[in-house]
């Protein structure tokens, strides 16, 4: 039995450029939902040799080590989940000395997510990472490593979310980091604002090369037995299919407002979901909590996307933002 070869032009090319980064396909992971070094420990090193993601985004790096919030930290909710992890992690020094050298051996680009509690912390983080990369990643590292400003974590009690909700604060942080960071600079936005497009415009105006949206929606769950808040942090961030229509609306509005590329996320768990985000204007899509179910989901979605585009006779370029065009 033989299979007909797909003709070259009917197979849409999934390669996508995000500033200086070249991604083999447009499906990446959302920060904090896929620890690829942990996956390698559990499932074996193959995941490092052929990562399923178009670019890899580690958990948000903070300046100092953080334990994060008290448990309980997660709960499944209708069509999704709520979490209040609170940016736990080893901090900048541990990241630079521990994970970074191994992550630089990945065959895909790296997007480092940073979270600060003041504008100065973002600048210190960006400068620290730049120095480490200049020393350890060789020439041309800006073509392999980008930076994402997490100004949108709903689960920490100062800094992060407050910066992300204020266009003036965003401008200040983005322009300050811009002076320290020569590579791709992404700003990840919270949907917990009145007008996300104006925040995106402020970030782009201050020098962000791309906008990532959306982080989780702030919510809460009540423990039925005690009738008290379930999460240790009281409130948490809602993710999963439940937020997809809300996220699509945000991407649609951001795309209409800014020129820079958009990384769209919020409830994606299939190639069809990814296509919806591309149609609204995302150039790249990110898989978040659905990846907890299947660590290789990003790769499966990329394959499905190729099939889906091919069946429709469309290219990636055709489909990005197509929902904004009224003609059939």
């Amino acid at each position: 039995m033989t299979f007909p070869m797909q003709s070259q032009h009917s197979s849409p090319d999934l390669i996508v450029h995000l500033g200086p980064l070249t991604l083999a396909h447009p499906v990446i992971n959302a920060s904090g939902t896929m620890e690829i070094l942990e996956l390698a420990d559990v499932f074996g090193e193959d995941v490092l040799k052929s990562p399923p993601v178009g670019a890899y985004v580690p958990k948000t790096i903070t300046l100092k080590p953080r334990q994060g919030n008290l448990p309980p930290r997660i709960l499944e909710t209708p069509a999704g989940m709520i979490n209040a992890i609170g940016l736990s992690g080893g901090g900048l020094e541990a990241f630079v000395g521990g994970s970074l050298p191994r992550l630089l051996t990945l065959s895909c680009p790296l997007i480092l997510s940073i979270g600060g509690f003041s504008p100065r912390e973002y600048v210190e983080l960006a400068a620290g990472l730049r120095q480490a990369l200049q020393a350890g990643a060789g020439d041309g590292w800006t073509q392999r490593v980008g930076l994402e400003l997490n100004v949108s974590c709903p689960n920490v009690h100062s800094g992060c979310l407050l910066i992300g909700a204020d266009p003036g604060e965003i401008e200040g942080v983005v322009s300050a980091v811009r002076r320290e960071w020569p590579g791709l600079l992404i700003t990840k936005l919270t949907p917990n604002v009145t007008d996300i497009a104006s925040i995106a415009a402020a970030a782009a105006g201050a020098g962000a090369d791309a906008i990532s949206a959306v982080n989780t929606f702030k919510g809460m769950v009540i423990d039925r037995r005690s009738l008290r808040p379930f999460l240790g942090n009281v409130t948490g961030g809602l993710s999963g299919p439940a937020i997809k229509p809300l996220a699509l609306r945000a991407i649609f509005e951001i795309f209409a407002r800014v020129e820079v590329p958009v990384i769209g996320m919020g409830g994606i768990r299939s190639a069809e979901d990814a296509l919806d985000f591309l149609a609204c204007g995302a150039t790249v899509v990110a898989v978040g909590s659905a990846g907890f179910t299947d660590p290789w989901l990003t790769g499966r979605i990329a394959s499905g996307l190729a099939t889906s585009l091919s069946e429709r006779g469309l290219t990636l370029r055709d489909v990005v933002g197509i929902a904004h065009r009224r003609e059939a």
Binding site: D41, R73, N83
Partner: peptide
């Protein structure tokens, strides 16, 4: 959620 150390939810 993940069972493998990705999400830090089971602290």
């Amino acid at each position: 959620a993940c069972g493998v150390g990705s999400c830090h939810g089971c602290a």
